[in-house]
């Protein structure tokens, strides 16, 4: 698969997994960096399975059909779902939680250099500052993107939160 096709697939599938749009994710500036982390942490063999699952899901036009495909092709997969779970954490919290040792033996791939079971890999400061979890709640990462003096005394104003409709 060509690099550009891989990136497109990765971005579209990330949108599916995170609930944010491709535009949202592109705007974080982290797409290439996170794709690099995924590749580096999992290896070529697992990536082939990941792209296959992504393509299987994204071929469907309707959200319901894509959700059904995820139930069939992603969630039951002992290889692909753990990759997706770590990837979702990377988007939401800005760090990649290490995959389990059993995942590597299951796939038959070597563990990446420096691997430890409790490792949290932060690819860059930007991964931290653009994390999506706080945005979901109308907030911002501690120490980054502050919302201004006194903003905490009123409801959050940015649109992402409204989409999340929590009430």
């Amino acid at each position: 698969m060509k690099a550009i096709a891989k990136r497109t697939l990765f971005l579209a599938f990330s949108a599916e997994l995170t609930g944010y749009t491709e535009t949202d994710l592109e705007g974080t500036g982290n797409v290439d960096s996170f794709l690099g982390v995924l590749e580096q942490q999992t290896g070529a063999k697992a990536m082939t399975l990941f792209y296959a699952a992504a393509a299987a899901v994204l071929q469907h036009g309707s959200a319901a059909a894509r959700a059904a495909a995820i139930r069939i092709d992603v969630l039951p997969s002992p290889t692909v779902w753990p990759m997706c779970a770590s990837l979702i954490m990377l988007w939401y919290q800005g760090f990649w939680p290490a995959l389990a040792a059993s995942w590597y033996s299951g796939v038959g791939s070597p563990k990446p250099k420096g691997w430890s079971a409790t490792q949290k890999i932060v690819p860059s400061a930007q991964a931290y500052t653009a994390q999506l979890a706080y945005r979901a709640a109308g907030a911002h990462p501690p120490g980054a993107n502050p919302t201004g003096h006194g903003s905490w005394s009123i409801d959050p104003v940015f649109g992402d939160y409204v989409d999340g409709s929590t009430s």
Binding site: E16, L17, T18, G19, Y20, A67, I70, L75, W81, C84, A85, I88, M89, Y92, L132, A133, Y134, A136, A137, G138, A139, Y161, G164, S165, T166
Partner: peptide, 21 residues
């Protein structure tokens, strides 16, 4: 939530619901 295989829009919605309260 990931342990329950919650992902995508449902994850975002549920997280916003919990975090905001």
């Amino acid at each position: 939530l990931l342990g329950q295989q919650t992902y995508g829009a449902a994850l975002r919605r549920e997280l916003a619901h919990r975090m905001s309260r």
